[in-house]
Design a protein around this nucleic acid. Structure first.
Length: 705
DNA sequence: TTCATTCAGTCGTAT
DNA sequence: ACGACTGAATGAACC
């Protein structure tokens, strides 16, 4: 294809994990001296070392994903007791292939040759049991899904309430008239409407979500535990109290002190202890003086607070419940988990809760508080030998988000989009000397269509006006299983991954503000392209990204797959293959039955898709593309791929969107699962090519392909 | 910015 | 089976 400077090839190829068609000589020249040798020595050691090197920089920030990947070693066995709970949801992320294999064994018809190959390949190389960290991640994703579903429910209810209000106001006079004739009916209207109506808005979808998870037995650790919880390392960030409940890390969404009650004294393993016994506390941060410094904490007991209004003491605190539990910790030298709540403005979540590690309750005493009532104070000291306190690091990392262009360290390009995007995307390079900027491609915000590809025309859309709200009347909503795939919170969040999302488009009656055009609004977050030591270019966000939020589209040249064969140096080809996309869900659960396969896609065409081993169309971002071409692969990604149809309904030509699969803190590298089937990539010699994966995830498949 | 209201599981007590 | 207990989340009301 295009002649690129050697440097460019290097950058681009590594950055995208080296897709496929590189020549063997190039491959060896660039990667092998360092890689292959070590690979032979020991794969795992290599991976770990790389992760350490890599995360040197990012560990500070990416507490959930990054890190040494080690942690899990011994604890994996313990987790088997909870296997049942998570088992049914194993068909996600890195284990998709495994799940397919299982289905086959169960007698389901193998779909395609490609599929079965993927299954076989995966079973050989994949870690059988999920790491504890992955389980936690999965649990929180489930929580987020419930949360968004319940937000949607709430939004619907509120709309209805509002509509009813309007209607009732308008028809007030009419009602009076009709009272005479329809007395009984109006009575019925008033009775059920009033209680719902008055509770107009605040319904706490977060609490609803944990209720649902309890109901379904989906709390990861329903039993309280003393000490660390598998999969939650020091520095782990939670984005709400409810999230902690979902994991079982702190089982109250409200209380500061979580403790084991008397009932635990019956258990054999706790026979020698006195209960109640505290296991975890949350420092809400409202007592500024609670925090002496990072290693020492002064904690005020519970009770006697005025629940409503000003949080003043109105009673003496009593030595009972949580206070007693903490006292017992002093006497029995039991360490408690300490979670610190931080205000984090400039983020959608508002508050972040960081796990700061185990603390010994060394001392307690009673004193008279400001209001003259007795309060209990507890002195906690951090246990030695724990990872450095993350509080400072978090602040450091948040502080590191540059406020202006002049503050950006290692800036090599102020805006790689050349003004095309609403928000500039700077590129930084603190790795190379001299620092180089990403080159060898042309930035293009929107997709380019190859000459021999024709997008369908004469497509009908919905007939809504302004914003689409009623899923019963909006034709686009009906295609999505009679519901909108987005909630309006935070400017539009996708509730969950779907096989395909039908958005409103140019053929619809609604306007640009329609919720069902969420993925068409361009970039919302301040992204940065940055150079990594080992993985080439990478992308991160300076803003917090809530789960389900659209991050960017994958753009490039939309072309026929067969035309790409001549383009042999290209590493940026994204196949528009629904099956492949589903493999790359990255942890989002599929809901097959919820997606009505629309009649517009004729059934024979659908069969075509299934039987085809190679998708007909692809997006080539090799020479032309947007920010998405710099996003790296990970086996445990924080983004997922979602096919979106907006201007037409041909699934083979769907747009490729990347959405946040998790709540993503600022400066965490953005990644998605490239979704390669193992042993599916062939070199020029016709032999299967392999590529090691260095994403560093605990459940890394070790191979990209 | 502050204010007021709601939210729901846990733990202990009382059946 | 019941009720006290708890302070986060949230929209409204407030300048």
């Amino acid at each position: 294809m295009v002649v690129q400077s050697p440097k460019c090839v290097q950058e681009s190829s590594i950055s995208n994990g080296e897709v496929s068609l590189r020549t063997e000589s190039e491959f060896q020249k660039r990667v092998s001296p360092r890689l292959k040798e070590k690979q032979r020595v020991e794969k795992e050691l290599l991976v770990r070392r790389r992760v350490e090197l890599l995360d040197d920089n990012e560990e500070v920030v990416a507490s959930a994903v990054g890190g040494g990947g080690g942690g899990g070693g011994g604890s994996e066995e313990k987790s088997s007791e909870k296997k049942k709970k998570t088992y049914k949801r194993r068909c996600i992320g890195g284990n998709v292939n495994q799940e397919e294999e299982k289905k086959k064994v169960n007698g389901e018809v193998a779909k395609t040759a490609e599929d079965s190959e993927a299954g076989n390949g995966a079973v050989k190389g994949v870690v059988a049991e999920k790491s504890d960290i992955a389980k936690v991640k999965e649990t929180i994703r489930l929580f987020n899904k419930y949360y968004l579903l319940l937000v949607q429910e709430e939004e619907k209810r509120c709309r209805k309430v509002e509509a009813d209000k309007k209607a009732s106001k308008v028809s007030k006079s009419k009602k009076k008239e009709s009272k005479a004739t329809k007395g009984s009916k109006s009575k019925k209207m008033v009775v059920p409407v009033l209680p719902e109506d008055t509770k107009s808005k605040a319904k706490r979808p977060d609490l609803k979500a944990i209720s649902k998870m309890m109901e379904n037995g989906e709390i990861l650790y329903p039993e309280k535990r003393i000490g660390n919880i598998p999969g939650i390392r020091v520095g782990h960030q939670f984005y709400s109290r409810a999230e902690m409940v979902a994991v079982g890390f702190h089982s109250h969404w409200l209380n500061g002190i979580d403790y084991m009650g008397q009932s635990y004294s019956k258990l054999e393993e706790h026979k020698d202890k006195t209960f109640p016994l505290a296991v975890a506390i949350v420092l809400s941060g409202m007592y500024e003086d609670d925090l002496d410094n990072a290693e020492d904490v002064l904690y005020t007991g519970q009770g006697g607070h005025d629940l409503t209004g000003n949080k003043r003491q109105i009673q003496d605190q009593k030595m009972e419940r949580g206070n007693l539990a903490l006292k017992n910790c002093v006497e029995q030298k039991i360490a408690v988990r300490v979670i610190r709540g931080h205000e984090s403005k400039s983020s959608y979540c508002g508050k972040v809760y960081t796990y700061d590690g185990l603390y010994q309750v060394v001392h307690y005493w009673a004193e008279k508080g400001i209001s003259g009532y007795t309060i209990f104070k507890y002195r906690l000291r951090r246990q030695d030998g724990q990872p450095l306190l993350t509080t400072n690091q978090v602040q450091f990392s948040y502080g590191r988000v540059p406020q202006s262009v002049s503050e950006i360290r290692g800036l090599v390009c102020e805006d790689i989009t050349g003004g095309q995007e609403d928000i500039p995307i700077p590129a930084t390079n603190l790795v190379d000397d001299p620092p180089v900027a990403p080159t060898g491609y042309k930035y293009c915000k929107s997709i380019q269509v190859a000459k021999n590809v024709k997008l369908p025309t004469n497509v009908t859309g919905c007939n809504c006006n302004g914003k689409c709200v009623d899923p019963r009347t909006c034709a686009c909503a009906r295609l999505n299983g009679s519901d909108f795939p987005y909630v309006s919170r935070d400017g539009g969040r996708l509730i969950e991954a779907k096989d395909v999302v039908f958005e409103c488009g140019p053929n619809c009656g609604c306007g640009p503000d329609c919720l069902n055009r969420t993925s068409q609004r361009g970039l919302k977050y301040r992204l940065e392209v940055f150079r990594t030591p080992k993985k080439g270019w990478a992308v991160r966000s300076w803003d917090f990204i809530p789960s389900g939020a659209p991050v960017c589209e994958y753009t490039g040249i939309l072309m026929q797959t067969e035309d790409t064969d001549s383009v042999s140096e290209n590493n940026y080809i994204f196949d528009i293959d629904c099956l492949q996309t589903m493999r790359g869900l990255g942890g989002r659960e599929r809901r097959f039955r919820d997606v009505s396969v629309p009649t517009i896609i004729s059934s024979d065409r659908h069969d075509d898709l299934r039987s085809e081993s190679v998708p007909e169309f692809c997006i080539d971002a090799g020479s032309t593309g947007n920010i998405a071409r710099f996003i790296n692969h990970s086996c445990e990604p924080n983004l997922f791929v979602q096919c979106v149809l907006s201007s037409h309904h041909d699934i083979k030509l769907a747009r490729i969107m990347l959405f946040a699969a998790d709540n993503i803190p600022p400066l965490q590298e953005l990644t998605y699962d490239y979704g390669y089937a193992l042993d599916s990539v062939y070199g020029p010699d016709g032999k299967i090519k392999q590529m090691a994966c260095y994403c560093g995830a605990p459940d890394c498949r070790k191979r990209l392909f």
